[in-house]
Design a protein around this nucleic acid. Structure first.
Lengths: 213, 213
DNA sequence: TAAAAAAAAGGGGAAAATCCTTTAACCATA
DNA sequence: TATGGTTAAAGGATTTTCCCCTTTTTTTTA
């Protein structure tokens, strides 16, 4: 019986070993080799014997990351199916990865049986998506989320000021706007980013490098 | 005429060059050499010819920072006078540096004339302090600032919770305290740290690594 | 140029945060 | 056992924030 061929691409040594081992333990799958980043993978694909059916691809890698690598594969090796593997649960990242051509998106703490199902389904049906990922996909289609979530210049300006000890009234003065307009800004941003209050906004701004303390 | 000997210790190449140039331009001062960190300086001091009268010391350096280096000099080369040079305007840092034995504390955007005066005064009077630094010094003596500024364990715990979207009432529940007590905590902390509101507290906590977003 | 969309502003009200003062309970220890 | 120090808690007043919902003004676009 011919085993399905798999390549694991992940810069985290321990994890790629573990995942490789898991895949090898499935009787109808075989790990050809593992790579530390996209560049390494692309190099190896020069040899026809090294071209797998499926790539388990980490998203966050140095040199050439999962998104870029997947885009490259879609262009140059369209028959290779990419299954993304990541700790990132960030919607934007998941969307980028899927748009780049990934056939599925697994979180790294995936259970053995789920990994197996994912591998099989990707080969048979061409895709595998958990409920979470499906929901994100649907949402992104139905309400043009990215565009609406995009922060405008003036909003960014406001956020930076909100990361200080100034009151909204003071911020309004600085931005030459009415306090009521500032409230509007704040309310829009809260809704866009699913925030409850200013503290959440400050943390968000710092996490996303809008404001650097 | 004998020129006064100076060594510049700063890991920022450009800046140490600039400062060195400035010092050399004073007719009665001469830069012996520059170092990138405290370790380098200590090594060079083995040679008696390399022992200067005065060291212009950066506070933030890798390997061996300004405070540790100044402490070492106080112990082993008490005749070398240290003039601290930093972008840090943090009270605690300034105090540490002075306690370590620095004879003065200059901000890096110091003007030429002020640097000159500082160098002269340190050599002649033994110290040079700007108004700002003097005030900090006085304050630290009069009201035992350090001890009172020290945050207690429970306060740290509170601060971490304040860096979330929780209301004070929710925080009170979590900490098994009355909301009024939580208010007390907050007020004490605001006063200690000269803060106006929760936003300021969040920024402070992140800056000081009490809360890592 | 009229219609649509986005930006700005407003009113009102409830909740939360801020500020100030005072009280209660509990220790330590002189 | 009085004394003072610390921590916890409360009352009351004021400001700021947050949340609806509506209106006006400006800009964009069909």
């Amino acid at each position: 019986m011919m085993k399905h061929t798999v390549v694991v691409v992940d810069d985290h040594n321990l994890l790629s070993q573990a995942i490789g081992g898991l895949v090898d333990s499935f009787e109808n799958f075989k790990v050809l080799y593992t790579c530390r980043n996209g560049k390494e993978l692309i190099k190896r694909l020069d040899h026809p014997d090294d071209v797998p059916e499926l790539v388990l691809m980490d998203v966050n890698m140095p040199i050439l990351n999962g998104i870029e690598t997947t885009e490259y594969l879609k262009k140059n090796f369209p028959r290779i199916k990419v299954l993304a593997l990541s700790i990132e649960e960030d919607e934007a990242v998941i969307l980028k990865m899927l748009r780049a051509g990934a056939r599925g998106y697994l979180l790294k703490d995936v259970k053995k049986i789920e990994l197996y199902n994912a591998l099989l389904e990707v080969l048979e049906k061409g895709f595998y998506h958990t409920n979470t990922v499906t929901k994100i996909l649907v949402d992104s289609l139905t309400e043009d989320k990215e565009k609406e979530t995009q922060l405008k210049d003036r909003e960014i300006e406001f956020i930076r000021l909100a990361c200080t000890e100034k009151t909204y009234k003071e911020i309004a003065d600085i931005m030459h706007l009415s306090p009521k307009t500032i409230e509007g800004y704040r309310n829009n941003i809260f809704e866009k980013l699913h925030l409850r209050n200013r503290t959440g906004l400050v943390i968000y701004a710092i996490k996303n490098k809008i404001f650097i303390p």
